[in-house]
């Protein structure tokens, strides 16, 4: 075989590897010269790369399957809670169960979104908030409500699961609280506004506000018995973030974390 042909074979095989096509193999001749050695080296490299690519694909598949199963298991828990309360007419108990279901659902949503992504690692905050709010409006907003939702969330904000789960739960609590308690005054059009940006230092700042009833006079976050509020504080702490409240023309939270 002429050297030109042998070199071309080597180059073509390397190009095939670059396309993750490892079916190519260069014939090893009996010349035993440098080109034969390079060809053998390229063949061995292809075998090693093939093994690594396969194991990477298997891991990706496994991760996808894992998120799918976690999400399905959470859905099963939600369904079981439904069955458990099917003959229940205690309104307070039903409300508690529904709150729990929505909390589980907020976590399941992260897993559901993760297995649909390419890398199974990052969740887009904007998309997540969109899905979460739709689900919470269905669950809590009164029929024929006139509550407007305004989302101004930077499309470039993504979080890994470690941050997205607590953040999702915090947003779930904020929005549930607004939908359940803020808009009892039917004469006023309700509005929920969520803004999220990252500043130059890398801090994510989420401003959440509603124009509802606001907090009760003398509200003390350290003494509240509201599980929702306690969760917001605890989860913010878990994220090493800070949260501030302001009750003026409704309620405003500012959540900051790195």
């Amino acid at each position: 075989m002429k050297n030109d042909k042998r070199t071309k074979d080597i180059v073509n095989t390397i190009m095939a590897f670059a396309r993750l096509d490892f079916s190519h193999k260069i014939p090893i001749d009996d010349k035993g010269d440098t080109l034969t050695a390079i060809a053998a080296g390229v063949n061995m490299l292809g075998e090693e790369l093939r093994g690594n690519v396969i194991s990477l694909k298997e891991k990706e598949q496994l991760l996808k399957e894992l998120h799918h199963r976690v999400k399905n298991n959470m859905q099963i828990i939600i369904s079981m809670l439904n069955l458990q309360t099917i003959n229940e007419d205690n309104e307070r108990l039903l409300a508690l169960v529904r709150d729990s279901q929505n909390r589980i659902s907020a976590m399941a949503l992260v897993h559901e979104m993760l297995y649909s992504t390419k890398d199974f690692v990052f969740t887009q905050l904007k998309e997540y908030t969109d899905f979460l709010s739709t689900s919470l409006f269905i669950s809590y907003a009164p029929p024929n409500h006139e509550i407007e939702l305004e989302l101004n969330i930077d499309e470039e904000i993504f979080f890994e699961i470690d941050q997205m789960i607590p953040l999702g739960l915090i947003m779930n609590e904020m929005m549930s609280n607004s939908l359940k308690h803020a808009f009892k005054n039917k004469n006023k059009k309700g509005k929920i506004k969520i803004e999220a940006v990252t500043n130059e230092e890398g801090w994510c700042i989420i401003n959440y506000s509603d124009n509802g009833a606001g907090l009760k006079k003398g509200f003390d976050i350290t003494k509240t018995e509201s599980l929702g509020m306690q969760l917001i504080v605890m989860l913010t702490d878990q994220m090493d973030g800070t949260i501030t409240f302001e009750s003026k023309n409704g309620l405003l939270y500012q959540l900051k974390f790195l």
């Binding site: 090893i28 035993g32 390079i38």
Partner: peptide
């Protein structure tokens, strides 16, 4: 000693 055996040997050691 041959280029081929050197490549195979180095590959085995390295990878």
């Amino acid at each position: 000693d041959s280029p081929l055996s050197k490549i195979i040997g180095n590959f085995f050691m390295g990878l």
